[in-house]
């Protein structure tokens, strides 16, 4: 029962702050709302007993990515500067599209019979680690390596793009 209440609290936090993150007129605040959303998501992971994922979520997302975004905001905008709000028509159309999309998806979710497994075992971190480095059948060593290369490439690319010099 406690878990149930906890879930709903987290769900409300996620939805409310998500919504605020995309509607707030101040960039810094939007970033903070994003941070709350991401932290609540991490809480959700804790709730379903995926502690490793939860910690990754908190460290990488809530810690790393949000910090990056905050840096970007600070480099480009005045923190308290208000940003231009979208056009009305655009808002209406985008809102309509989102609502329709949500309704359709939720309809599908509700009409689909999910076979929930009764087996409630938690996977330990070591299993994930072994699988990431497993080059046998079902192992993930190749995507793991690809991601490492991707991260390296994006590191270099970020430096190159940001270092570009302009004459004017």
């Amino acid at each position: 029962m406690g878990a149930q209440i906890m879930f709903y609290i987290l769900a409300i936090i996620i939805l409310v702050f998500s919504f605020l993150a995309v509607t707030s007129s101040k960039v810094m605040r939007a970033t903070m709302y994003l941070l709350f959303t991401l932290i609540a998501t991490g809480g959700l992971y804790f709730l379903i007993d995926y502690n490793f994922m939860a910690s990754v979520q908190l460290i990488v997302y809530a810690g790393g990515i949000v910090a990056l975004i905050i840096f970007a905001v600070m480099l480009t905008e005045k923190i308290e500067a208000k940003i231009a709000l979208p056009d009305k028509t655009k808002m209406i159309f985008a809102g309509l599209l989102s609502i329709v999309g949500s309704i359709v998806t939720i309809y599908i979710l509700l009409s689909h019979p999910f076979k929930e497994s009764s087996n409630d075992i938690g996977q330990t971190v070591s299993v994930i680690g072994e699988n990431l480095l497993n080059y046998g059948e079902g192992g993930f060593v190749l995507p793991f390596e690809l991601v490492s290369i991707l991260l390296l490439a994006s590191l270099i690319a970020a430096i190159v793009i940001a270092k570009r010099k302009f004459d004017n």
Binding site: P86, A94, S98, I99, S102, T105, I106, L109
Partner: peptide
């Protein structure tokens, strides 16, 4: 799902 479409909305507007 709702989070996804909120994201879409934000992306579009």
């Amino acid at each position: 799902t709702l989070m996804f479409f909120i994201g879409i909305y934000g992306f579009l507007t």
